[in-house]
């Protein structure tokens, strides 16, 4: 185990962790505020990746600019999905929520399969392609760009949740929906907005991932489970918990890929997940 190699894989881990944090944030928000179990989260990421691919091809647009279109689009899509399906069962049993979101997952998977076929798709051009050297270390530009955008977004989200009135209403609803509604918060609108916001974040995450990774209709499973691992690790510790969990997870993943086997990615992530559920079910950053 060379020290340079180790530092390099930690650097890769931190960069990827920044991106994973944005992928998981939408789920953390929806699960934390609405207590809704969304199994389709990863498949919304997959859909966002496909739409980024499609729009960048149709409009000959750099994928890093596509979110300007897709974020509002996914915000509206999220509100539509919430109103159409989840609103009915937002206080219902966990099993119905899982069943409905599994239905959404199968639906999204096969809609993308029908539209784009099973062959993996990748974008053709982006301004942030390539990599640069700093000393002996390599920095892939597209991933670094993704991590920076993601961290800026998370900071903005954190400020939004802690400094604005709407953010306060969201946090109050997360704490106790009934009490919040007694204080004049329209819980229904807060839920719809939160789901839309979560889906909007997914649109950005999908576009950033698309700059360096290909997509196929089955990509959703990995991003979905990955997000759940991060949420389990972060507990309900808010933006900060999600951020640090992502970094820790991505560093572990990166070291495992470098020194064991690149195909072992899932083994490392999911083993951490299962053992974490055994030893610390409240997560690493839970407040209570």
């Amino acid at each position: 185990m060379e020290p340079i190699q180790l530092v390099q894989s930690v650097i890769f881990g931190i960069i990827m962790g920044g991106i994973y944090a944005l992928v998981a944030m939408g789920l953390a928000l929806v699960f934390g505020v609405m207590n809704v179990i969304n199994f389709a989260h990863g498949d919304f990421v997959m859909l966002a990746m496909y739409i980024t691919y499609f729009l960048s091809l149709m409009l000959t647009l750099d994928p890093i600019l596509v979110p300007l279109i897709t974020i509002p689009m996914f915000f509206v899509l999220g509100i539509g999905v919430y109103m159409g399906t989840l609103h009915k069962i937002v206080r219902g049993p966990a099993l119905s929520q899982i069943a409905v979101t599994v239905g959404l997952m199968v639906l999204l998977r096969n809609v993308t399969l029908a539209l784009w076929r099973a062959e993996p798709k990748a974008i053709q051009y982006t301004a942030v392609a390539g990599y640069f050297h700093v000393g002996p270390f390599i920095f892939p530009t597209s991933r670094l760009f993704g991590a920076v955008v993601s961290i800026l977004t998370l900071v903005a989200l954190h400020l939004f949740l802690t400094r604005t009135k709407l953010g306060l209403a969201i946090r109050a609803t997360a704490e106790d929906a009934d009490a919040a509604s007694l204080f004049g918060v329209n819980v229904r609108n807060v839920y719809a907005f939160t789901f839309g916001l979560g889906t909007g974040l997914i649109a950005l995450a999908g576009a950033l991932i698309m700059t360096f990774q290909e997509v196929n209709p089955l990509s959703g499973l990995l991003y979905g489970l990955l997000s759940w691992v991060i949420v389990a690790m972060g507990g309900l510790g808010g933006v900060v918990g999600v951020f640090f969990s992502s970094i820790i997870l991505a560093i572990a993943e990166s070291i495992g890929i470098t020194f064991w086997d690149p195909r072992a990615r899932e083994i490392i992530i999911y083993l951490i997940f299962i053992i974490l559920l055994w030893v610390r079910p409240t997560g690493l950053f839970a407040k209570r």
């Binding site: 239905g103 199968v106 639906l107 998977r109 096969n110 029908a114 076929r117 209709p217």
Partner: peptide
């Protein structure tokens, strides 16, 4: 259309649960 039969399937699932 590839996958169409599973689209039908997913819609049935969502409708039944709701």
């Amino acid at each position: 259309v590839q996958g169409l039969h599973l689209i039908v399937y997913a819609v049935i699932l969502i409708l039944v649960v709701l």
